[in-house]
Write a protein that binds this DNA or RNA. Structure first.
Length: 498
RNA sequence: CGGGACGUAGCCUAGCGGCUAAGGCGCCAGCUUUGGGAGCUGGAUAUCGGGAGUUCGAAUCUCCCCGUCCCGACCA
C-alpha cells in the first residue's frame, strides 16, 4: 500500500493534515472552515478538558453556562472589543420565520453577555471575587482555516472573573497563566514560554494579555493559551459597580482566560512523526494495544496467552485495546496503531507464549523490550512514565536548539534569511532530505524598546512577530532595542507564528 | 477577501467532445494466511463537487456557485 502520510521534510502542512485525517481525529464539514471532531480526536479533548477542569476547580473556580446568542448591542458597548471582533462575527438576523428586531451575534467570546449578568449579581465586595468558567463552543468567521489550529467554530473554555482590587485581578491573571503553563508541560508535554503580549498582539478590550507560547516542529510559534487582565473596561462598559469595604462605590476588576481545541493541534505538531500520531500517555485513548500474533493452528493458545496479558495490564489500571481481529496481518496492525499514536504496543505470539515473554514497543522511540509476562504491568507503567517525561524533554531540547539571542535587525534577518536560502536550495534539489531540522528560524530572543512602529516594521518585512515577553527573562534589560536601537525596556521572543 | 492549484466509487488515479466511465487500494463472500501494511477466486459500490449553458452528443468546452490545499491580506 502507498504511504499514507506525507513526510514532514516534503510538506509540513500536508503532513499535519494527513495525520489528522488518517488518525481519524477530525474531518471536514459541509460548512466552510468548520470541522467534525471524530471520536479519537474528541477523546484527546475530553482527557485534556477533564484534567484542566480539575485544576480550575482546585484553584477555586466554578463552571457555569451562558447562551451562545448575544444581542449585537452588547458587543458595541466596549469600543475596542467590537472593533477587534466585528470582521469575524456570524450574525443571526432571522428566527422563527421573521426578521429579528435586534440581530443576535453567535458568540465569538462571552465577555459581554457574562458582564451583563455580573452587573445583576455583584453589589458588594462580599460578592467578590466571582470565579466562573464555562466550557463552550464559539464562532469566529476566519478567512483561512486549518483543522484544530484555526476553525470557524471551535471548542474552548473561557474563565471570567471579577475582583475587588486591581492587584487581585492581576494576581488571578497570573495564577491562571501558571495553571496553563504547568498543565501544558506536565500533561501535554508541551514546553511553553509564559510571558506578556505586546500592545499590538493583545486581546481586544484587555489592558494586558499574557500567553503561553509553544514551538512546533517547523519552528513556528503557536499561542497555546491566553490570560487577560481586563482592568475595569468591561465593568465600566456594563456598569458593574460594588460597594467597597470603606462604603464607597467602585467598578470591579476583571480577567478572562482561555484555551481551545487548538491545543489538540499543538500536541499533534509537537510530538508526532512520519509514521503518524505520537501522544503523551496522559492523553492517549488507549495507553497500550496488545496485538496477538497467531496462526490458525495456535490461535487458541496465543489468544489465551495474550488475553492474560490484557487482563494483567487492565488490573494494573491501564487503558488497553486488544486487537484480536483475525482478518488483518500483524504488520498492518502495527502500522495502524502507530498511526493512531498508541504509546505502547505489546506483541504476544507463539514464541512469547512458549518463553513467557511479551514484546513491548515504545511508540516515540521504537525501542523494543522483551518482558516477562508477570513483569509486564510494572514495565508498562515505567515506559509510560518515561515517555511522558521524555516527550517534554525532547520538545524542550528542540526548542532550545532553535532559539537564538539576537542583538540587531541584521541578526534577525540572518536567522530567518537562512530559511529562505534553504527553501531555494530544496527547490533546486527537487526535494529536501533532512526534515524540519534543515530549516532555519525559530525563536529569536532580543531586547525591545516596546515601540509599536519597529514591531510593525518587523512583521511587514519578515512576518516575524513578538510572541511574548517572558516573565523570567525581564531582569537585566539594559541595552538597545534590537529592532530600532532605542533604549530597551523588555526582552522579547520573536518568531513566525500560526 | 485577492492570486494559483485541485475536485471522477470510502481513498488514490486514468479518461480531456463520441459506444456500457477504466484501473489500483480499501470493502463484502469464500478459501488460504498472519513476528512490519499477505495471496487466490468471485462480488458490490459513481447523481464524474453543484447549477446553468454551448453541442446531434459533455466527466471532457464556457459561465456561475460550493469545497479543499498553497501564497498573500486579515486574524482575541
Amino acid at each position: 500500500m502507498a504511504e499514507k502520510i506525507t513526510p514532514r521534510s516534503v510538506d509540513y502542512s500536508q503532513w499535519y493534515i494527513d495525520i489528522v485525517l488518517n488518525a481519524k481525529l477530525a474531518d471536514y464539514s459541509p460548512v466552510k472552515g468548520c470541522m467534525v471532531i471524530r471520536p479519537r480526536g474528541y477523546a484527546i479533548w475530553e482527557r485534556l478538558r477533564d484534567e484542566l477542569d480539575r485544576r480550575f476547580k482546585e484553584t477555586g473556580h466554578q463552571n457555569a453556562y451562558f447562551p451562545m446568542f448575544i444581542p449585537m448591542s452588547f458587543l458595541k458597548k466596549e469600543a475596542e472589543h467590537i472593533e477587534g471582533f466585528s470582521p469575524e462575527l456570524a450574525v443571526v438576523t432571522h428566527a422563527g420565520g421573521e426578521e429579528l428586531e435586534e440581530p443576535l451575534v453567535v458568540r465569538p467570546t462571552s465577555e459581554t453577555i457574562i458582564w451583563s449578568k455580573y452587573r445583576d449579581w455583584i453589589q458588594s465586595w462580599r460578592d467578590l471575587p466571582l470565579l466562573y468558567n464555562q466550557w463552550a463552543n464559539v464562532v469566529r468567521w476566519e478567512k483561512r482555516t486549518r483543522l484544530f489550529l484555526r476553525t470557524t467554530e471551535f471548542l474552548w473554555q473561557e474563565g471570567h472573573t471579577a475582583h475587588e482590587t486591581k492587584e487581585q485581578a492581576v494576581q488571578e491573571t497570573e495564577t491562571m497563566l501558571e495553571v496553563y503553563r504547568a498543565f501544558a508541560e506536565e500533561y501535554l508535554c508541551l514546553p511553553v514560554i509564559a510571558g506578556r503580549k505586546s500592545e499590538a498582539e493583545k486581546f481586544a478590550g484587555a489592558v494586558a494579555t499574557y500567553s503561553i507560547e509553544a514551538m512546533m516542529q517547523d519552528k513556528k510559534a503557536l499561542q497555546a493559551g491566553t490570560s487577560h487582565f481586563l482592568g475595569q473596561n468591561f465593568a465600566k462598559a456594563f456598569d458593574v459597580q460594588f460597594q467597597t469595604r470603606e462604603g464607597g462605590l467602585d467598578h470591579v476588576w476583571a480577567t478572562s482566560w482561555g484555551v481551545s481545541t487548538r491545543l489538540v493541534g499543538a500536541i499533534i505538531m509537537t510530538h508526532s512523526d512520519d509514521k503518524g500520531l505520537v501522544l503523551p500517555p496522559s492523553l492517549a485513548q488507549e495507553e497500550i494495544v496488545v496485538v496477538p500474533i497467531f496462526k490458525s493452528d495456535n490461535k487458541a493458545t496465543v489468544l489465551e496467552y495474550a488475553g492474560k496479558v490484557v487482563a494483567a495490564l487492565k488490573a494494573d489500571g491501564r487503558r488497553v485495546a486488544f486487537d484480536d481481529d483475525d482478518s488483518s496481518s500483524p504488520g498492518w496492525k502495527f502500522a495502524e496503531w502507530e498511526m493512531r499514536g498508541v504509546p505502547i504496543r505489546v506483541e504476544a505470539g507463539p514464541k512469547d507464549a512458549a518463553s513467557g515473554n511479551v514484546v513491548m514497543v515504545r511508540r516515540d522511540t521504537g525501542e523494543k523490550t522483551f518482558v516477562k509476562v508477570e513483569e509486564a504491568a510494572a514495565k508498562a507503567r515505567e515506559i509510560l512514565a518515561a515517555m511522558q517525561k521524555d516527550l517534554l524533554e525532547k520538545a524542550r531540547a528542540f526548542r532550545d536548539a532553535n532559539t537564538r539571542d539576537v542583538a540587531s535587525l541584521d541578526d534577525i534577518r540572518a536567522f530567518y534569511g537562512k530559511e529562505k536560502k534553504a527553501k531555494k536550495q530544496s527547490e533546486v534539489d527537487g526535494e529536501s532530505h533532512e526534515g524540519t531540522a534543515e530549516a532555519a528560524g525559530g525563536y529569536a530572543r532580543g531586547l525591545w524598546c516596546g515601540g509599536r512602529e519597529c514591531e510593525a516594521a518587523l512583521k511587514a518585512e519578515l512576518k516575524v512577530t513578538i510572541r511574548n515577553m517572558p516573565f523570567d527573562q525581564q531582569a537585566d534589560c539594559e541595552g538597545s532595542c534590537c529592532l530600532c536601537g532605542a533604549p530597551a525596556k523588555h526582552r522579547a521572543i520573536f518568531a513566525k507564528s500560526y
